[in-house]
Design a protein around this nucleic acid. Sequence first.
DNA 1: TAACTTGTTTAAAC
DNA 2: TGTTTAAACAAGTT
Length: 278
Amino acid sequence: MPELPEVEIMARNLDRWTAGRVLTGVTVVDERVDSGGVVAWSAGAAGQTVGRSWRRAKYAVTEVGSRVLVLHFRMTGKVVAAEPGTRKAERLVLHLATQAGRPDAVVFDDARHLGNAWVRPREGLDTWFSQDRKLGPEPWPMRRTAAFWHHQLGHTRRPVKVALMHQESIAGIGNILASEVLWRARIDPKRPARDLTTADWERVAEAVAGVVDDTLARDSGDEIAYVNSRGGSTRGVASPFSVYRCEGQPCPRCAAPVERFKQSGRSTFWCATCQGST
DNA sequence: TAACTTGTTTAAAC
DNA sequence: TGTTTAAACAAGTT
């Protein structure tokens, strides 16, 4: 499931594959992917030049002329450099004028068809993200201080794990990242966010940077290596996570069994020994 | 087969 | 009124 680090990789790939190139056409394979403006734009897209691509929260943004193509991947979406027609669940295809060493097409592949795409004016994009999409500030790559985390999340009584996933407070942290960050920071996921101390937020700040950087180092490549639905711990393949989907397995830090419970309908994984309340 | 998986939206409850 | 939780939704896997 693409969270902040995976979307960062896909945005970098998009940039590497498409920046500065001319579109020869856009195929909207599945019109349901269009959450605004995509179908209308696709008809006249040929001939336009692609600009830079970057990430905002869990969205990938690609400049095309004076507009931007915005992608959200939800659970199973990903962008790949592939021959059109070779993927099982293609939803959107960008065709590019041939250029040596770069792909002729970029495919938005999305097995469960839950992803979304928009085409919007480049102008006002920041406002659209912050106001319409209700996205808070980015937790990465800039180094955020303990004071920043406290300011964004320290007001609520909600459990800190639930608070971390609230996109309006901080944008880009999902269920996986939240569990991993709290394990790394040795914080009980059930603690009310407002009860965390400056020292706790300091560890959160460090843990976010650490988990994101580690994931980027591990997963960078042409195609996102999704954790499969067995949690990446299938025969012989080590789980890339410390606690996520590692229920019953030994905590990498103290060897106590990792536990699981539900918060706001979502599975939280943690080590009760390492992360016990203080 | 029914339960589980995701982020987001909407409705309901506290 | 503001905060918080629960349910619904998309669709495919186990």
